[in-house]
Design a protein around this nucleic acid. Structure first.
Lengths: 236, 236
DNA sequence: GTCAATACCTATCGCGTGATAGGTTTAGTC
DNA sequence: GACTAAACCTATCACGCGATAGGTATTGAC
């Protein structure tokens, strides 16, 4: 009787610290669940080396697994890339769709969309440098992501066109302007250092400030835009 | 006697159309010498697929050779990447060094450096999208290229700082401004279509115009800058 | 204790890769 | 015609890749 009770007192304690399943060869603690850890480490490696040059063995080792174990969580290497791409752009496109429909001047809407996107790129849990900017991701396999990205470009282009029509933005080739501005936006991915001195908010604000100074007929309007827009960190 | 003469009349004609060396299996004419054709086709494939995902068999087929023949012209696949990287940035850095030393206002010098670089990126004989923007090229193997690129960024940063000191450009975090402007510059690589409607000159001019509008204290100074700078196609 | 589910492991496969080795085909020189 | 250099070719290699197959080690439920 007494021996049985002593055994039961020991078991619940072990249950709280051990996940179900075979223990790993790599005993190091991981702060994320396995699928998220795989994505996190994959993104890091992709950003540093590119997708094709990153092997599944490297990803597995970085995530604390053996290479074939990756296929328990993702059906193919490709599926990892796809999951990373899908993890981006959703929030920023939703925000852009919402803001672009509001009853405000085009310049204000543009300002808010741009700074939100740049901040979002800097603060994603995953380092997306390689994925968004590299030709490796241009495959038709990721058509959904590229469609949504094209939609975001379209929204920005429409806002620039509306600003030109309203007279708040300077006359120019609206498509070329869209490309240049969006290039500066995504260009953030090539230099933003997640361990560096600049915060995502600061980058978002400064980028949008420069973009609007470039486009506004009268850059003195910028101060009013910044006031009306409010602090970036209040955007949902 | 006569038969011998007839034979000699035929040979000189063949000598003018046939290069020395074994004929290719792929008989199609190539407009460039073999090494240049390899670089051209490699750049095209790298831009579309990325470096690691492009095989030497693909490069060879595109250049009209068999795969091992590549190694007659380049010692390794890597050497192809290196040659492409070296083919860029030389002219633009020389120009930037020269212009940045001239006795003109910082804003004018900056304007000329920026538009030259953007045009240069658009008009390179090789499509460098994958090489300049992708992590694949970040290897220490290409240290020389990355040093020169850093020098270019430094020159632009110094010009921005000088403009801020002179009072022609707005006060702001000079390093962040440099990064954003250079991001727009290189971002051109992600969207410029060599078969498209925009010319390299137009892109160079428009990019520099937007960048200076963003940075100038008084954007009305832009017109004077454009006049003083003269047409981009006159830059050597 | 048995069984099922879960999360891993080791072993291995079929295939494709960059590169080497040796041979072939041409023009040019003597 | 013999020889050399140049520019190719075919054949092959050693290696590493993504993925499959089957087994192992744990928890939790009964």
């Amino acid at each position: 009787m007494k021996a049985t009770n002593a055994k039961k007192a020991t078991k619940p304690k072990a249950a709280k610290t051990r996940p179900v399943g075979r223990p790993r060869a790599d005993r190091r603690r991981r702060e994320r669940p396995p699928d998220e850890e795989i994505l996190f480490q994959a993104a890091r490696l992709f950003a540093r080396q590119g997708v094709a040059a990153t092997t599944t063995r490297q990803i597995a080792a970085a995530a604390g697994l053996r290479q074939p174990s990756l296929f328990h969580w993702f059906p193919t290497k490709d599926a990892i890339v796809e999951a990373l791409l899908e993890s981006t752009i959703g929030a920023t496109l939703d925000h852009a769709e919402r803001v672009s429909k509001e009853r405000h001047g085009a310049a204000l809407r543009l300002f808010r969309v741009l700074r939100f996107d740049a901040r979002h790129l800097c603060s994603s849990p995953y380092d997306l440098t390689a994925l968004v900017l590299s030709p490796e991701s241009r495959s038709s396999r990721y058509g959904r992501f590229w469609k949504r990205r094209a939609r975001l470009i379209e929204i920005i282009g429409d806002l620039i066109a509306a600003g030109i029509r309203e007279g708040s933005l300077v006359e120019m080739d609206r498509k070329l302007a869209t490309r240049l501005v969006f290039g500066m936006d995504e260009g953030v991915l090539t230099w933003f250092d997640r361990e560096g001195a600049w915060t995502p908010d600061l980058v978002g604000e400064t980028f949008a400030e420069l973009a609007l100074r470039a486009l506004l007929r009268d850059p003195k309007d910028l101060a009013a835009l910044q006031r009306e827009a409010g602090p970036l960190h209040d955007e949902p």
